[in-house]
Design a protein around this nucleic acid. Structure first.
Lengths: 236, 236
DNA sequence: GTATAGATTTAGGCGCGCTTAATTTAGAGT
DNA sequence: ACTCTAAATTAAGCGCGCCTAAATCTATAC
C-alpha cells in the first residue's frame, strides 16, 4: 500500500510527464529528453530516469538516444490531464472571476487533485464547453479533441485581411496580460495592416468593443504564438 | 529549489500532520504518537520521524514519550487547513451538488492544492459561510473559530427534550448516509423519546420536512457522535 | 520496590524523484 | 573515415516519508 493514489492512479510527476510529452508531440516536435526536461524544469537525467519507469509501465515507448512516444494508454492518460486542466481553467474563469492570465498556475495544481466526478460536475455546470478561456479545445471524457486545422499564426495572416483571434498559449501570464491590454481576447476581430520583414513586428487594427479601432504593434515572437482564423479575402 | 511548493509552503504530509494534531488537541485528547498514527493511517515510527522534523521547524513542541503540542505557528497553519477543508466542503455541496457524505474525500485532496486566493473567492461566492455542511464552524482567514460550547452529544440530551442536530463528523460517509436516511440533517429538530441504559440505543422522534413524525433508533456510538442543541425543557 | 505491558523511539532500509559528475552515443562537418 | 560536439544515459547520492524489527522508556499492578 503506497501513498499518492488519486482517481487517476498515477503520481503527480507521472501526470506531469505524460502531459508534457503529449504537448510536445501535439506541436509536432519529437519528444526529446532535453525538451521534456525544459518543459518540466528538471535536469535531463531526471527525465531519463522517469522515462525508464514510464516505459516499463507501458505508458510510452522509448527509443534510446532518439526520443519517446506515448502509447495509446499514455495518450489516454495525457488527454485526461489536458481535459482536467482546461475544464478547470474554464470553471475558474467563468464561475470564480479569475482572469485568463491567472488561471494556469491554479489549474496546474488542481488538475492533480480533482476527481473525475468533480471534473464532470464542473463540465456540466459550464454546459460542456468546447474551448477553454485561451481558445484551446477541451478533450471529451472519451479523449476526443477537436482539430483546429484552419488556424494560422498571426505572422501568416495576409496583409489587408480581417482575422479573428482564436487561441493563445496559457503559459505566460505576462504575455496574456499584454495581449489583453491590446484589446485582444479570444474572438476579437482585427485587420492586419502590415508585417515588417526580417522577423519584424506586425501591425494590426483591432475592432474594439465600442466599435472604435485601435492600432497595435506586435513583435514577431508574440505574433507567432497567436493562432488566428482568417475571415475573408481583402478588405473594402 | 525543491519541489512541492504550494502557497502554504508546507508539504502535503506536513499539512496532514498539523491538521490531525490540531483535531486531536481540539477534542481535548493529548496528541500522542499512536493517536496521530491512527488518524493518518501510518505506523507509529513514521510519526516519531515526522514529529522530529516538525518540531525542528518550530511547528510543534515535543515532550519525548509524552506527546506533542502545536506552537502558535503550527496552530495557525493547521487552522488554515481546517478553513480550506470546510470552505471546500461547503462549496462542493452548495455549488456543485455534492451530498454531505461524499465531500470529505474530495476536500481532503483539494485542500493541499488550492491557493489562498481560490479559497477566498469560494468563500466570497458562498457569502462567507460560518458553518460547513456538517455543521462544523469555519475558521476565518485570521484563524478565529466560533466556539460551540452549547452543544451536547445526543446521549446527553434529557429524555422528553426537543433538540436540534447541529454537527456530525464528516469522516465516515456510511455514517452520514445512515444519518440522512433517518431524516436527520443539520438543523433537523427531534424529540428524545428515551435512552436505553448500558450504552444502549437512543430513540428519537424526528420532525420531517412534511411535518410528519418518524421514530428512529440510534445506537450509542452513533448517538455519541451527534452534537445537538437542546431546545427547551419538557415537551407538552 | 520491582516486574511487566504498552507506548515510543531508534536503527536500518526502501521507493520516488530529484541532483551533479562522468560516460556513452548519434550525427554533422571535414 | 574520423573527429568533435551536443544530447542522452549511467553512476552515485540526497531528502522525504514510509516501513519493520529492535531497543528503550513510562506507568501501572502487584
Amino acid at each position: 500500500m503506497s501513498a499518492n493514489r488519486k482517481s487517476s492512479g498515477f503520481s503527480r510527476s507521472t501526470e506531469d510527464y505524460l502531459k508534457a510529452i503529449y504537448e510536445l508531440e501535439a506541436e509536432g516536435r519529437p519528444a526529446q529528453t532535453s525538451a521534456i526536461a525544459e518543459a518540466l524544469a528538471v535536469a535531463p537525467p531526471s527525465v531519463s530516469g522517469m522515462v525508464k519507469r514510464l516505459s516499463e509501465s507501458g505508458l510510452l515507448q522509448h527509443a534510446p538516444y532518439r526520443g519517446v512516444q506515448l502509447t495509446p494508454s499514455g495518450k489516454r492518460a495525457a488527454l485526461k490531464m489536458v481535459r482536467r486542466h482546461r475544464i478547470l481553467e474554464t470553471y475558474l474563469t467563468t464561475k470564480l472571476g479569475y482572469d485568463w492570465d491567472s488561471v494556469h498556475d491554479e489549474a496546474e495544481r488542481l488538475e492533480h487533485a480533482v476527481s473525475d466526478q468533480l471534473i464532470e460536475r464542473m463540465a456540466m455546470a459550464l454546459g460542456y464547453p468546447r474551448f477553454d478561456p485561451h481558445g484551446a479545445p477541451i478533450p471529451t471524457k472519451d479523449g476526443l479533441m477537436e482539430e483546429q486545422d484552419d488556424l494560422v499564426s498571426l505572422t501568416d495572416v495576409p496583409v489587408g485581411s480581417m482575422a479573428e483571434l482564436r487561441m493563445v498559449s496559457d503559459r505566460d501570464p505576462d504575455l496574456l496580460r499584454f495581449v489583453a491590454s491590446l484589446g485582444l481576447r479570444v474572438g476579437a476581430v482585427f485587420e492586419v495592416v502590415g508585417h515588417q520583414p526580417f522577423k519584424g513586428p506586425t501591425t494590426i487594427r483591432v475592432v474594439g468593443a465600442d466599435a472604435r479601432e485601435k492600432d497595435a504593434v506586435v513583435g514577431y515572437e508574440l505574433a507567432a504564438s497567436l493562432s488566428c482564423l482568417v475571415l475573408e479575402g481583402e478588405v473594402g
